[in-house]
Design a protein around this nucleic acid. Structure first.
Lengths: 177, 177
DNA sequence: GGGTACATGTAATCAGTTACATGATTTA
DNA sequence: TAAATCATGTAACTGATTACATGTACCC
């Protein structure tokens, strides 16, 4: 907004442009998918509006390609960098939320049929195992890279989470026999 | 919405009214706090608008107290019950999201100062340990209750999650010495 | 009877989603 | 050159948040 506060999505966009250098919206979209997309997904349309907003506030600079498709290229500005640093330094005492429609529905499992629960468990286990597979692939690629130390930490936390989730749904299936 | 689909918050409100019987908005608010509030928080104002919406669509019935403060009392209707069942039976193949500003900022830790990270770790560890304490209290109260079997499952998943998070932040503090 | 916590709501705003639309590149 | 995929955006809508406002009950 026109005041100084950054939303989580602002932080993500700003942070990724800072990390990756000059970016088109599409580059940002791809970077989101490869990084925080699993924990904080949002539609690509928001990248366009968010980047435009950040540019309006002077946190990103916007350059338009001369030739070809005249895409917009964003760079982080001085004031963008300090806004990012300020955002990162704001303390957060709210614990993490686990947003899962699956778990929400499991909570109300008493009102659902056993078949529905089992199907849910099936799908959820599969989804978490798939995400695990890609995360482990990324882990193999980036481990040891000291410059990506924090990204690796977050990735590994996600891996442990997906393992726990996959186990939860798998146990649920076994338990109902 | 005027079409039939339920948002997560619709499902929560409908499910809790189904579970607890006739409710005022405040009762619902309290029930959310004691149940899914940790994983799917939302402001109390939304309960008023959501319940009104569900009543407009005939999924809840709305009665106004005759005496005293003329509060609204909601009950689930036949069609509310079947909408809930339908919602529960819709398959969900999207894996859970971990929405945490703390982890998000940790991801960009390379652009923050060590002190900021340590303070963040401190606050996050504390927040998760507090939530753990209340969750364990609830666990002690409801374990063994066969009618709350699913709620207990979800609660325990949450406990394991908070343990993992507390450990993550605690390790981070140790690791940086 | 005055303060404090509990309880109930409304209004305005905005972030985020959905749906649509189309241009540019690659590949078969 | 047609199809498919990659890339780029806009418009409309609405769920969700913030901020405000006030009423009621209890307790000191």
């Amino acid at each position: 907004m026109s005041n100084g506060r950054l939303t989580p999505v602002s932080g993500i966009v700003l942070g990724l442009v800072k990390r990756d250098g000059p970016c088109t919206p599409y580059d940002i979209k791809a970077a989101v998918e490869r990084s925080v997309g699993a924990m904080w997904p949002f539609p690509h349309s928001q990248i366009y509006s968010e980047a435009a907003r950040l540019a309006r506030e002077g946190l990103l600079s916007e350059e338009i390609e001369e030739k070809g498709r005249r895409r917009k290229i964003y760079r982080i500005t001085q004031s963008g960098s300090s806004a990012l640093r300020r955002w990162l330094s704001e303390p957060d005492d709210h614990p993490a939320q686990v947003r899962s429609l699956g778990i929400l529905k499991l909570f109300f499992g008493a009102f659902a049929s056993t078949e529905d629960i089992l199907r849910l468990a099936q799908l959820q286990e599969k989804a978490h195992k798939e995400r695990l597979a890609t995360a482990r692939g990324i882990e193999a690629r980036i481990q040891g890279r000291e410059d990506l130390r924090f990204q690796l930490l977050v990735l590994r936390a996600g891996i442990r989470f997906d393992e726990a989730q996959a186990r939860l749904w798998s146990d649920l299936k076994d338990g109902s026999r």
